[in-house]
Nucleic acid binder design. Structure first.
Lengths: 175, 175
DNA sequence: TCTATGTTTCAATAATTTTTGAACTATGGC
DNA sequence: GCCATAGTTCAAAAATTATTGAAACATAGA
């Protein structure tokens, strides 16, 4: 939980992160997105990039992101890729310019749906045959009606959830 | 995400975990719950315990869980505590017995809602004043209408989400 | 109260995930 | 083709999160 969000089961002292050199409101916005992203299991650096673009007056390019967040090239590259892949940011090519400049997609809701779908859908799809097998196994080995009932419900849930997703349009390009 | 689950941004070889000595269908059920738990940021050991109880013919006690999963006392204790706290399992005290025996709560749906609430609600509550401040800051510093609009929408979302939760009853004891 | 049983706590360790940065790839313009 | 700019890759290092296990705690029953 995700998990992950991701809560440590017991709080322990943890090393502090060097403070970003952001103005205080941008810092708070960043913290907000980092916190929310944590719940969804999205890395901090990705959330920081998104927050920066979300609060920016204009689209920013690769180097601007790197400079503002004092982040490595690798992280910026991967972070932008992640956000692109989930259609959470859009590129705005300035005329005659080589670099891409990025801004958040208009709909945060759609972004969230994309993100959640990409995490949940593969798991649900993978689960369908698994739960089928588990249930059959329980029937074959004469499990109690209670256990059979539990497993059946699990399978029904899985099916219903799978049916639900296509309704949350629009599906991403690759499907 | 998810945490979050939790997808590595790039797949790397990772050490294998020693296989549990579970019968194959129980193993598959365990894998299923571990996978789903990963999305929610719940530790593997917790998912394993829940899966074991979910597929069990009878309620199991502390030592049975520990023995079946070959897990440390500490993990079993913390895992059961987590599941208890989120009302995902119930204890069944046998007459004249000292040990508690555990079984999954009847409603997996309610369990899930409890789990998600416990992750999301505190974050939303924390965010309310933060987003208020960020928005005011943007207004004071004459941010563009576009940015103000984005931040306003964020705040509206936050508010709506907070209003939504009380509708998903029943709230846990401590509120 | 004393003991044995059952459970929790938590510092140390292990496992996993994230970030970094140097080397590499891709491509536009000359 | 060549150079310079733009971005990607990925193995190593750092940071974080999960698990272990021994000691501490709690309490039912003698």
């Amino acid at each position: 939980m995700t998990p992950p969000s991701k809560k440590p089961l017991s709080a322990r002292p943890r090393r502090a992160r060097p403070p970003l050199g952001l103005p205080s409101h941008e810092q708070e916005l960043s913290d907000f997105f980092v916190r929310m992203a944590g719940i969804l299991g999205v890395p901090r650096s990705v959330a920081q990039i998104y927050a920066l673009l979300y609060g920016a007056e204009h689209p920013l390019d690769f180097d601007q992101v790197q400079a503002r967040l004092k982040m490595s090239k690798g992280s910026v590259s991967q972070g932008l890729k992640f956000l692109r892949d989930h259609e959470m940011i859009l590129s705005v090519k300035a005329k005659g310019a080589r670099r891409e400049r990025w801004q958040p997609t208009p709909s945060l809701a759609a972004s969230l749906v994309n993100l959640i779908r990409s995490q949940v859908l593969p798991a649900l799809q993978h689960s369908t045959p698994v739960l089928q097998r588990v249930l059959e196994g329980a029937e074959v080995t004469r499990s109690s009606p209670e256990v059979i009932e539990r497993l059946s419900r699990l399978k029904r849930w899985n099916t219903r959830a799978l049916e639900l997703f296509p309704l949350m349009l629009p599906p991403p390009k690759g499907s």
